[in-house]
Design a protein around this nucleic acid. Structure first.
Lengths: 248, 248
DNA sequence: GCAAAAGTGTTTAACTTACACCCATGT
DNA sequence: ACATGGGTGTAAGTTAAACACTTTTGC
C-alpha cells in the first residue's frame, strides 16, 4: 500500500463469521447450506461481501444481525484472521476476513437470511469432517475454535455464551464444554468470584429441581482474566518440564 | 461469501508489515517515506498489493524479504489483523492485511525497494504522533506493538529479536525494552532456563568488558511460555483485586 | 583489589489443587 | 429423610518476588 504499483489487482473481500454457542452439552457452530454452486448443498459459514461504504467490523455485525437477530453488546464479536489462498474460491479471487462470535444460547436460531437452510452443527462433527463443508471453512472453524479456547484462558469472554443473568455453574459448564474437560466446582467458584469486576451479583437466585439454589450474576466490566485459568493440557505439559529441575 | 450476491464490489487487498526490532535501548519500527501522493513525504509501513496468485502469508514474506533481505525461518512473521475502514485510502477501497514481524537487530537495514527513503523509527515517537504517518498506519503500529507485548507474555517469540546465539541478559533486555519495565535478572534467568526446549546451551560463552562471561544459547523448539511471564502492569492490577478477599 | 555482570540460594508470600464438609432446596 | 447441586474450609504442594550472596571476568 505504501508502494504505488500500476493497476493493483483487485479482489472481492468477504466477511465470514464463525458463530459459536453452547446450547446444552456441546459446542455448536452456525452454518448455512449453500443454495447455489459452487459447493451447492454443502455447509458454509454465514458471511457476505464487504459493501462499498462499510468497515469490516460493521459488515460482521450486519451479517450477525441478519443471521441471528443479535446485536453487538449482546455478543462477543471479534476479527481473528484473514484468509486469502489463491484457489480458495473457484469463482475468483476472494479474500475472507474471518470473525468469531460467541453468543448466548439459543439465540432465536434461524432468522431470515437469503439462505435455504440454516443450522447449528456440533463443532466436533464439523472438525471430524463428517459434514460437507464448502471452501476452506472447515479450517476456519478449526482456527476459530482454537482461538476461542485460548481466549477463555486469559479473558472473560466465556460469559458471552451465557444469558444476561447466569449462575457460576452455567459459566463453568461453558468452560468444561469448550475445553472438553471437567473443572473442580469449588475451586472454579472461588477463582471467578475473585476476579475483580468480572461477575456482579444480582442478589437473586435460581430455583431448580434438586440442589441448593445458585446465586445469579451479571457480566461485569472486566475483560482480562488475571491470573489466567488453565486447561489441563497446558498444565500437564508444563508440569512435565518443570519437574526436571525440581530436585529439592 | 456463502451468499451469492450479484456483482460483489471489488477492492484492492494490500499486505502491510510492522517490522519491529530492538537494536539498542529502544523498540524501533521500519517505515518507508512515501515518494508519491497521497501522503507524499510521510512515513508508511512497508507493504504492497496482493498479487494474483499469491497467498497472504507469501505476500508478507515477499515484502519482508524485499525490505530487509530476511527470509522466514530467521524471523517471526505473523498475521495479526485486517483493516478496512472505507476512507482509509483516498485512492479507493483498500483492505490491508497487517502482519507483525519480529527481527534480530540490525538486519541489513535498508534494502532495495522502490521507496525513496527507508528508516528505523523509534516506536515511542511514532505512537506519540511526532512522526508524520500516512493512512491509518499509526493505529496499525499501535495495535502491532500491543500484540507483540502480549505475545511476549505467553510465547517464546522474544528470542526472534535476538541473533542466532544470544545470552540470557540479551533476552531479558528485549523484554525490558518492549515492556518498558525492569525485570529481576536472577528470577528471569531461572524462569527462562526452566522452560523446556526454550533455550539450548551452546557451551560457549561471551567475553566482554567487565563482568562475568555469560553462557550463549540458541533458540529451542518451544513456542509457548507455560506458565507465562507477566508484565508488572498486569500483576499490580490483579493484586489490587486479589487483596480484597485475602483476609487471613 | 574493585567494579560489573552472571548466576544461585533462601525466605516469604501467594496461589493451585484436592477434597472434606456444610448449606439450601425439591421430592 | 435423602438426593442434588451450591458454596466454603483447609492442608499440602508449587510457584513467584525480593534480595542476599557467590562466581568470573576486565581493569
Amino acid at each position: 500500500m505504501s508502494h504505488d504499483h500500476t493497476a493493483p489487482p483487485t479482489a472481492s473481500v468477504a466477511v465470514d463469521t464463525v458463530i459459536l454457542t453452547v446450547p446444552a452439552d456441546e459446542l455448536v457452530v452456525l452454518l448455512v447450506r449453500r443454495a447455489n454452486p459452487p459447493y451447492q448443498g454443502e455447509w458454509a459459514l454465514p458471511g457476505g461481501f464487504l459493501e462499498a461504504d462499510e468497515d469490516l467490523d460493521d459488515a460482521a455485525a450486519r451479517e450477525l444481525r441478519e443471521e441471528t437477530g443479535l446485536r453487538p453488546g449482546e455478543v462477543h464479536l471479534e476479527q481473528f484472521r484473514g484468509y486469502g489462498a489463491p484457489g480458495r474460491d473457484p469463482r475468483g479471487r476472494v479474500v475472507s476476513i474471518a470473525y468469531l462470535a460467541l453468543v448466548p444460547s439459543p439465540p432465536t436460531a434461524t432468522a431470515g437470511g437469503d439462505a435455504a437452510d440454516v443450522g447449528w452443527l456440533p463443532v466436533a462433527e464439523v472438525l471430524a469432517g463428517g459434514t460437507g463443508t464448502a471452501f476452506d471453512h472447515r479450517t476456519i472453524v478449526e482456527d476459530a475454535v482454537e482461538h476461542a479456547r485460548r481466549m477463555l484462558e486469559h479473558t472473560t469472554v466465556a460469559a458471552a455464551f451465557c444469558p444476561p443473568e447466569f449462575t457460576i455453574s452455567q459459566l463453568r459448564r461453558v468452560y468444561e464444554i469448550v475445553w472438553g474437560e471437567t473443572l473442580d466446582p469449588g475451586n472454579f467458584h472461588r477463582k471467578v468470584t475473585r476476579i475483580p469486576d468480572f461477575l456482579v451479583a444480582t442478589g437473586e437466585s435460581t430455583t431448580r429441581d434438586g440442589g441448593r439454589p445458585a446465586a445469579l450474576f451479571r457480566r461485569g466490566t472486566a475483560t482480562r482474566l488475571q491470573p489466567p485459568l488453565y486447561r489441563a493440557v497446558d498444565r500437564s505439559a508444563s508440569a512435565r518440564g518443570q519437574r526436571r529441575s525440581t530436585g529439592r
